[in-house]
Design a protein around this nucleic acid. Structure first.
Lengths: 357, 357
DNA sequence: CTGAAAGCGCTAACAA
DNA sequence: TTGTTAGCGCTTTCAG
């Protein structure tokens, strides 16, 4: 066996040791080194195996991932594609980071790598598009594609392996994981109805998000079923980043018949509602009940603590990831259009109460 | 020119078109294709160029990133390594997601990819270690290495290009970006002192985080300078996830001489303090002033809104990334041990007031 | 049981 | 102006 110094000298000067460094230093062929290090199918004499193992360790050899990927046609890397909201602020919003956390956890467990695809999507013809097609990732998790984007069909054409999170609503033959939005909205609405509210408003998220019509129509259905009038002026289209929810709430509260409860599209909107209520001298929950959606960590910390529909973000992310890897590793199975809806639950806190009037 | 159908037939059946598909379909050599597509140095006849371009487009050819990386010895990918805190929950805490957002933004602007290195670090000898050495990334952003870990020196031995975020305190010759912890603590402490507080406690973060001793010693220095006694029982060692801050605050409040103010190691701890105070019937800020660190989004939403030291997380992340890419692309320059401290600022809200006694 | 050689898709000398 | 060829580091038949 070579002493350490000798083997060090053998190793190619710039950069890491390669498989042929190991082969040379252990006196075998690179084919054998590869076979040993991969626990390959071919039987190897124990002495040889040891020699290779030791040489590899001494050279602190690590197979080059790129070279491997090239021949294996598999990068062992997953991509995650977030739609760029709020000009690049992706990770710091509660929804995205929850999903990401789930994807990341599952990815790690499955021994895959995770890389971001962040360039704004601009259609097939764009340069940005290249990243999807250059073999960087074995599969892609697409998060919350807007309903007015053609990204999914474009990506299908490429033949990429992928799963969609929060893409319900348009079935285009890609497996999809999502919270059951209709159920979530139903839970929230039922809660308000059972408290005795009759004048209930809804401030939704961005109109081009798939969840929005689902939540809205479940909301109106419940109202109708409970023989409660659905007033058009109570149906407000907002944005998930809460940008104009404050003003919208002020408007609602200025009505001759203001709502006694608001079902907010998410917690960010709900908190804007709370601020608007406070600034209008309207007490929550005495004069106004508020229900959010997402059960973000901050919901428990605000005052009063927010009643909210909790959705299992990390589970959604990790289920999607597990499905994706399964698709990659068993491409034979056909799961086009499979849909997995996870159940939300209502977390009742102190922002909701029976109407005072 | 080949009609589309013909060129489609040329293309290798499984998978994407390759450079030789384009070469064949446009009747030139692969070298020319490469040269055209990379705007290479060699002059090309305009007609040829057009033929190549059109063939590439018809075949919707995209150079394979893996093959490219192999020959270029550059993946155009950055890695980010978070120390695994709270068993994998990385992205959903305010600090980590702020840094990540900054790194991600800069990475995107610089046209690099970002991949996660999430396997828990377990020393050089571990399998997990392989990922760092297999050439997957051109450089690495290391976030908040614990002071009792030997990761940095191990990684230096590998010869990886990297920059450290929140690694101040131990200069081991790697460029480092961080907030000025001492200044942040000084701002917080000065604020409390100038309000008239004499009995000020400090609940720190995890003892093995580099920021902790820096913040603590700035705190005690200011106290000493102001001729305020540093009581040992007021110096509490906590954790950044706030896990036992609630109980620690209760203990502090039970003292015969309880503190009138607490400087919390971060906002999570500060919020736990607020809960403990409320549950003890201690009013914030009347009976107890609280200052946090980080200025997390939730700080503005809690009640009362939290006074906190704001640190520029995304700037830190993007500065680190820019430095890293510069190191990758201009390896000649020597920047060992360079240290960049960004300035924090104090955001005064309603959790601080003069002491009532 | 082990090795030689082909080739993954691409870039970059070096020729022509 | 364009083509030929030799690798990048690795896996994998196919021979010995």
């Amino acid at each position: 066996l070579e002493p350490i110094e000798a083997s060090m000298r053998i190793r190619s000067s710039r950069g890491n040791a390669t498989i042929s460094d190991v082969a040379r230093s252990s006196g075998v062929s690179i084919a054998t080194v590869s076979n040993v290090l991969n626990n390959g199918p071919k039987p190897v004499k124990e002495a040889t195996r040891q020699r290779v193992l030791i040489a590899a360790k001494e050279l602190s050899y690590h197979p080059n991932a790129t070279a491997r990927s090239l021949v294996n046609r598999r990068t062992h890397t997953l991509g995650i594609f977030f739609f760029v909201v709020d000009s690049m602020v992706v990770v710091t919003n509660n929804y995205a980071s929850g999903i990401l956390q789930g994807v990341l956890t599952a990815t790690t467990e499955l021994k895959y790598n995770l890389t971001f695809f962040t360039r704004p999507w601009a259609g097939t013809k764009q340069t940005a598009f290249a990243a999807f097609q250059d073999g960087r990732a074995d599969g892609l998790v697409i998060v919350a594609p807007p309903s007015d984007s053609d990204i999914l069909s474009d990506l299908i054409d490429i033949g990429l392996t992928m799963v969609v999170v929060a893409g319900t609503g348009r079935d285009i033959g890609i497996p999809c994981v999502d919270v059951d939005d209709a159920l979530g909205a139903t839970l929230a609405t039922n809660h308000l109805i059972s408290l005795g509210h009759k004048r209930i408003a809804h401030i939704s998220g961005d109109p081009n998000m798939n969840s929005v019509p689902l939540r809205r129509s479940a909301f109106t259905s419940r109202l109708t079923e409970a023989a409660i009038e659905v007033r058009p002026e109570y149906m407000v289209t907002g944005q998930y980043n809460g940008s104009n929810a404050y003003e919208q709430t002020l408007s609602l509260l200025r009505f001759k018949n203001p709502p006694t409860a608001i079902f907010a599209g998410n917690d960010t909107i709900a908190m804007a509602c709370m601020h608007a209520a406070r600034d209008s001298g309207v007490s929550v929950p005495r004069d106004l009940s508020i229900v959010g959606f997402d059960d973000a960590p901050a919901s428990a910390l605000v005052h009063p603590p927010l009643t909210s529909v909790s959705q299992p973000l990390t589970e959604i992310g990790s289920l999607a990831t597990n499905m994706l890897v399964d698709m990659i590793e068993r491409p034979d199975v056909d799961r086009r259009g499979s849909l997995h809806l996870l159940k939300p639950s209502l977390v009742v806190r102190e922002s909701t109460a029976p109407p005072s009037t």
